[in-house]
Design a protein around this nucleic acid. Sequence first.
DNA 1: GCAATTTTTGACCGTTTGGACAAACGTTAA
DNA 2: TTAACGTTTGTCCAAACGGTCAAAAATTGC
Lengths: 204, 204
Amino acid sequence: MDKQVPRKRTRIQREKRELIREAALEVFAQHGFRGSTIDQIAEAAGMSKPNLLYYFKNKEAIFATLIQRLLENWLAPLREMDEAGDPRTEIRSYIRRKMEMARDFPRESRLFANEMLQGAPRILPTLEGELKELVDEKAAVIAHWMRDGRLKKADPYHFIFAIWATTQHYADFDVQVRAVLGEKRGGEGRFEDAARFLEGLFLE
Amino acid sequence: MDKQVPRKRTRIQREKRELIREAALEVFAQHGFRGSTIDQIAEAAGMSKPNLLYYFKNKEAIFATLIQRLLENWLAPLREMDEAGDPRTEIRSYIRRKMEMARDFPRESRLFANEMLQGAPRILPTLEGELKELVDEKAAVIAHWMRDGRLKKADPYHFIFAIWATTQHYADFDVQVRAVLGEKRGGEGRFEDAARFLEGLFLE
DNA sequence: GCAATTTTTGACCGTTTGGACAAACGTTAA
DNA sequence: TTAACGTTTGTCCAAACGGTCAAAAATTGC
């Protein structure tokens, strides 16, 4: 039984694999896994399909590396929430960071949303394991802050959900947001406006 | 040029078309338009592919009727918000209704989310037209309430976005919510808990 | 009961899809 | 120069896909 040892990668392999990931993110985020084709990704990456399949053994493998990398970045901001810090400052920077992610990495957000809509077939274990653990921990921190009267009392889990929902909304439903806000308010400033609003909402 | 007159429909046609819509909603909501196949929908509806295509001329046509019906129901709750009513009561019932929709019609919510993620190719005009008009109108109502000191001051547009985002989150990201809440709190009561939390968030 | 109509089916078609493969091409280092 | 290795391409395949069609089966109206 020859184990699948991760081969040493050449410079070209590293570059091309990154290029493919970039292209695949674009395509998967818009059409989901089943709705995307290898040809689409290959074209977006400026190479032929067989060439792409030289770097990734199949469609699943491309998706897998994206999802894996996504989850690392996804949990990072919440991890940074520090029990020792000032509650309001901590919450405020968490909202800020989440909002910046919605602005700067909308495709990652949409990829995640797509996976959720499909019932999270590939990351359910991570959600029930790593994510749940992290949220349990941070919810306890928030609950503690609330008990000490340093934050308005509320359900800490739904508090976290609400921050997720509202911030990611500006990435996932960006079309709708821009359509409703129209020319004037739908410009670049919309993320800044949203961040300010959310700070008021969650920290009033 | 023979116009496509909407034929009179038999009882069977009405029933089967409804059955197909039901099946298609299930499939489209999970996989999006491109990710869904006619065969999948036909099987979910308990009929053969050619039989399904006897009732709808193609995949697009099925999707179109779903989207059309969806938009009507989607705007209804916001339409009911009444300027003459008590602001806090109006907001509270809007949140309640939206939350009930997330609980009772999660597939509709996911279908909508899927369309958004793909850039709303089929409903962008409606968003820029009908939806924007409605939101403009209701945002003005809310702004008025706020100016009169009957509601805490905030940006009315982002206020509405936040209600959409948080309520729909419990339908679209249901897997995640259940995974994080776990056995105990992830049961049927989660929608009620969420509704209570959101009332506090938006109205306190 | 029977003719007209509606519904269902199986067989089929052209295209797209994920993926395999060998051959050709390029690069490097002895 | 050449052998070894990494990269790219064109060709091919089987399965899945969206959709058509004629004919069979079921239903309806008289």
